[in-house]
Simulated scan of single mutants.
Amino acid sequence: MNSPSQPVFIDFEASSLDLVASYPIEVGICLPDSSTHSWLIKPHVLWNDWSESAEEIHGLCRQRLVDEGIEVYRVVKEMNELLSGDIFCDAWTFDSFWMHRLFKAAKAKPTFHLDSISMLLNEEQILKWQDVRQQVISEMDIVTHRAANDAMILQETWKRLQHIK
């Protein structure tokens, strides 16, 4: 599915930034061919946390997740069908927590391994990451804090940094 030369990127949006009570509300991936997939996640019965300030950032209300979200077991099944090997994110502490919470609720194990994008970058690339990312966001002119878009921003930022060895 992917290799270090053509990585897959993933991003989660969540109910809040509380690393005890929060849960994933959306997950998006960007594949090596730049195609994206995303899932709005129906809150599991035990997931009650909600932050109005987080809602203002990602623009998703809890009722929309209840009405339009996909059950956790189906999200996990589809992710496992699409993904294998190492998958990269930019906020490993949060993303790994939300991924674990998602898979635990579905009583499943991932067929892939989540790792930090920093594992793909050298020191100079890490130092330039934020500036290049901001340039990508400005040029792509897409909504941020939506999972598939953010995964696409990760991919494009990574691509632009590849000339720095």
Score class of each variant (00 low, 15 high):
67 D>R: 09
89 C>A: 08
67 D>H: 09
66 V>M: 08
76 V>Q: 06
69 G>P: 06
87 I>Y: 12
74 R>K: 04
72 V>S: 06
75 V>R: 01
71 E>M: 04
80 N>G: 03
69 G>V: 08
94 F>L: 14
102 L>Y: 01
76 V>F: 06
98 W>A: 07
61 C>Y: 14
85 G>A: 06
66 V>S: 03
64 R>Q: 11
74 R>Y: 06
93 T>Q: 15
51 S>M: 13
65 L>F: 13
70 I>G: 05
61 C>K: 15
74 R>G: 01
79 M>G: 05
76 V>I: 02
88 F>L: 11
55 E>F: 00
60 L>W: 01
78 E>Q: 07
85 G>E: 07
95 D>S: 11
81 E>S: 13
96 S>V: 11
98 W>P: 04
53 S>W: 12
52 E>G: 09
99 M>N: 11
70 I>W: 01
63 Q>R: 15
99 M>D: 07
71 E>G: 02
79 M>L: 15
81 E>D: 13
63 Q>H: 15
54 A>P: 02
55 E>V: 03
67 D>E: 13
101 R>V: 07
86 D>W: 05
92 W>A: 08
94 F>R: 14
83 L>N: 09
88 F>G: 07
93 T>A: 15
80 N>L: 08
54 A>C: 14
57 I>A: 00
51 S>C: 13
74 R>E: 13
83 L>I: 00
57 I>C: 02
98 W>S: 06
80 N>K: 03
89 C>G: 06
57 I>N: 09
51 S>I: 13
80 N>P: 03
60 L>P: 08
72 V>E: 04
58 H>L: 02
100 H>W: 07
57 I>S: 02
61 C>T: 15
79 M>V: 10
74 R>S: 05
64 R>D: 12
53 S>P: 00
57 I>V: 15
61 C>S: 14
91 A>G: 13
67 D>I: 08
98 W>D: 03
56 E>N: 08
101 R>D: 03
89 C>Q: 08
99 M>V: 14
53 S>K: 13
97 F>K: 07
58 H>F: 04
69 G>T: 12
64 R>W: 07
90 D>F: 07
65 L>K: 08
78 E>T: 05
70 I>A: 05
60 L>C: 06
79 M>K: 00
93 T>R: 15
94 F>I: 00
84 S>E: 13
96 S>C: 10
86 D>C: 08
75 V>P: 01
100 H>P: 00
100 H>L: 06
58 H>A: 05
84 S>G: 11
76 V>P: 05
68 E>W: 01
70 I>Y: 04
